[in-house]
């Protein structure tokens, strides 16, 4: 019911050097998003060679906070006895705003060159969906889902970057 997250909000300092966390699976995808037909919108950033650490790229709204690290309060029960509304209507139909039903906050730390691909990725998504824009939260959640459905692709990318070679 509350709009507040207890604790700190998501603040990001435009890809500063503070958030070079652990190696994480990152979508260094070369797949489709290469064709950044980023039309009018934001910076046509980053296809595959996003200039290493082009700092100020990320837009002010991004998360992957540096300072806040806690309290993913209550993990949700997306899978529990679905209410009737849930069964009847798909998520994007039944929700009224982007935060609905999203009670778990995940935080990820990524390398700049990964973060830098996000704008292009969202543009591409929007294109595919025939939408003006896809919100960051939506794009991320479903990117995660896609990864869950294709662990082998994730493994491949990690292997490419030397995971497990030592």
């Amino acid at each position: 019911m509350s709009n507040f997250k207890s604790g700190s909000g998501n603040l990001d300092f435009g890809g500063s050097d503070e958030d070079d966390g652990e190696p994480e699976p990152e979508p260094t995808e070369k797949t489709t998003q290469t064709d950044t037909e980023s039309n009018e919108g934001d910076e046509s950033t980053a296809t595959e060679q996003p200039g290493e650490d082009s700092r100020n790229k990320t837009s002010p709204g991004t998360d992957s906070t540096t300072s806040s690290q806690k309290e993913n309060r209550e993990s949700t029960e997306e899978s529990t006895p679905a209410t009737t509304a849930r069964e009847q209507y798909p998520y994007f139909i039944r929700r009224s705003n982007v935060g609905d039903e999203r009670d778990t906050r995940l935080e990820i730390h990524v390398r700049d060159r990964v973060a830098d691909q996000e704008a292009a990725f969202r543009n591409e998504l929007a294109e595919q969906l025939n939408a003006n824009e896809v919100s960051k939260t939506d794009a991320r959640e479903f990117a995660l889902l896609a990864a869950f459905q294709h662990p082998e692709r994730v493994a491949e990318l990690m292997a490419e970057e030397g995971f497990g070679t030592l």
Binding site: F4, S6, G7, G9, G61, D63, G99, T137
Partner: peptide, 11 residues
Amino acid sequence: ENQLDIEIGLS
């Protein structure tokens, strides 16, 4: 939060 796609925390 809705308009700007941010998350605001209450310490």
